[in-house]
Design a protein around this nucleic acid. Structure first.
Length: 232
DNA sequence: ACTGCGTGGCGTATTACATCA
DNA sequence: CGTGATGTAATACGCCACGCA
């Protein structure tokens, strides 16, 4: 079960900046007026039903200091517009923020907070997906490791009665069946008793998709260098 | 050119509240 | 109806970049 990296990056929303055409130009005085609104003050024109008081009937300063914390539930339309805006860009410049706030009948601060939280959620989701992906990778590698271990055991079991084989390098006698591993490419090479026959297994060959996916996804420098030295 | 300061934006952790099973 | 889990708006705080004197 290979998870392609695209499935993760697909979470990344496009960051193209087509320009915020809907942003009107504000007179500076108007912008200031919006900016100076109190965070917990009801924006003019906002639907009263969208504001929920936190069980404190007193909307003014509470006795323990600080105003009662109200929590706004964004309407579906507001959420939809914010999401749409977030798809276009993950951050807003002040003008875009103002425009969006005006459009949504929210305070700029609320729009800003929404984008902050949205970015955080997005990142969290991506992290979770990556975590899931790495878990699967780990499972796949574990399974692969198990298989290779079994293979090694099997090959070791084949090692019966060692007739002498002359090493081509050192010209010295070698056991007929030996397992060697190339340090650079980690190919496991067995020289069996049937002279000249070799069996080679590489991790990359075992699960090509996984290896390719991993190296591209996680960077996996070790894997990449391993594959590049496949000429060995 | 360097430095200190104020400001604004952002990321992150946390809190507080609403909603639902 | 009370309660715990979950989602999310809002807050707090620290860091960084930038402009300015």
């Amino acid at each position: 079960m290979a998870v392609s990296p695209s499935s993760i990056s697909s979470l990344e929303l496009t960051m193209s900046m087509p320009g915020f055409s809907s942003s009107p130009s504000f007179p500076s005085s108007e912008v200031c007026a919006v900016k100076d609104l109190d965070i917990n003050q009801l924006p003019s024109g906002a639907g009263e039903e969208e504001w929920i008081t936190a069980g404190m009937e007193d909307e003014e300063e509470s006795t323990n200091g600080g105003p009662p914390r109200k929590k706004l539930r964004l309407s579906k339309e507001q959420s939809r517009l914010l999401e749409e805006s977030f798809r276009q860009r993950h951050t807003l410049n002040p003008r875009q923020k103002e425009a969006l706030a005006l459009q949504l009948k929210l305070r700029p601060r609320q729009v800003e907070v929404w984008f902050q939280n949205r970015r955080a959620r997005s990142k969290l989701k991506q992290t979770e997906m990556e975590c899931e992906y790495l878990k699967r990778w780990f499972g796949s590698l574990t399974e692969q490791n198990r298989r290779l271990q079994r293979e090694v055991e099997e090959l070791r079991a084949l090692k019966v009665g060692p007739p002498t084989v002359i090493s081509p390098h050192s010209c010295e006698p070698l056991p007929a069946s030996t397992l060697t591993m190339c340090p650079s490419c980690e190919r496991v090479t067995t020289t069996g008793s049937d002279k000249g026959s070799t069996k080679t297994t590489t991790t990359a060959e075992a699960t090509p998709t996984t290896a390719a996916t991993l190296s591209s996804k996680v960077g996996a420098p070790a894997l990449q260098s391993r594959q590049s030295s496949a000429a060995c």
